[in-house]
Amino acid sequence: MRFGPAGYPAIGSKSDPEGSLKYTRGLGLDCLEVEFVRGARISEDRARQIGKCAKDLDIRLSCHAPYFISFNSDSPETVDKSVAWVVDTAKAAHWLGAYIIVIHAASYGKHPETALPNVISGLTRCKEQLDDLGIHDVTLGVETMGKKGQFGTLKEIAGVMKEVDGVRPVLDVAHVHARGVGCLKTKKDMQDLIDEFFPLAGPTAHFHISCIKYGEKGEISHLPLSEKEPDLQMLADILNDSDMDCNFVCESPLIEKDAVVFRDMFPRYRRS
């Protein structure tokens, strides 16, 4: 199991990915999600430099694609741009040596019935372009979403997987909790979620962890783990003895501090 932050932890006034990676490793963390949420604007040379640093430190990288992606848009231009944003992120991930990109695939909008076929169509186009580029080492990770108006339940993602090779779910536990208006109340609730997720996850189960503020429509904002919405100690207790390869990316407001907090919820990983 690996634990780490969503984004480069701030260690000074200047952007210093290598310094952030070294700081992350010094905390005993060993994964990091590079946040391309405003666009994958990085050169191949720079990406390869950062990727080498991460590899040398034994930090597993993943990437988050731009928030603007919307395969269910009424605008063909937006759909075309969505394909380009995914492909650009996957190219950057390939250069970095990152194994997965995380995608917010769509909103339901006025046409929820078209969301699944449109996501399938959009990701099929992405996969075809990546195949043409010879990029076969980056998984397209579709994230479980926290708002009821967004595409992204495990059942929906499983539907995409039936039609598009190279797609896996990314389980944002807090999003599931928020979408279900606080549904992860007991250890059984959490176990049922893991039992649904693991058969879909592939060789590495990619998680986003945080706590969350929610309302009747689902997600409002991410919160520190101390808020216990949901109580992630339940997740750690369930997975402590698991032999599944898991990657836990912390998206709380305390990205690296709460990654350490979560790691230390596992007796087998807790530092003395």
Rank of each mutant, 00 (worst) to 15 (best):
V260Q: 13
I59Y: 09
A84R: 10
S73C: 04
M234S: 02
G39P: 07
G26E: 10
L239Y: 14
M1P: 15
F266L: 12
N72T: 08
E229M: 12
V167G: 06
H64Q: 07
D165G: 14
A205G: 15
E113Y: 11
V164D: 01
G159K: 01
V170F: 02
P230F: 00
A92Y: 00
T124H: 09
T78N: 03
L32T: 07
P117K: 10
R25S: 14
E219K: 00
V160H: 03
I103S: 04
P76Y: 12
S43F: 08
V142C: 04
I157V: 12
S210N: 15
P224H: 01
P253V: 10
G7Y: 07
V164Y: 01
D16F: 01
R38S: 09
Y108T: 04
R263S: 09
H111P: 01
D165Y: 05
M190V: 12
R46T: 11
A93P: 02
C183H: 04
E196T: 12
V142L: 08
L116K: 04
S221Y: 01
V173G: 09
F151H: 02
A259N: 15
V119T: 11
A90E: 06
G152R: 01
R270H: 14
S15N: 12
P66L: 07
W85E: 13
P9K: 10
K81R: 12
E256D: 12
T186I: 03
A236N: 07
F36E: 11
D16K: 06
L193M: 09
N247M: 15
L154F: 03
A65W: 05
F36T: 03
I59D: 08
E113A: 14
R168G: 00
A10Y: 05
L123H: 10
R179H: 11
L184Q: 13
T153K: 01
D245Q: 12
C63V: 11
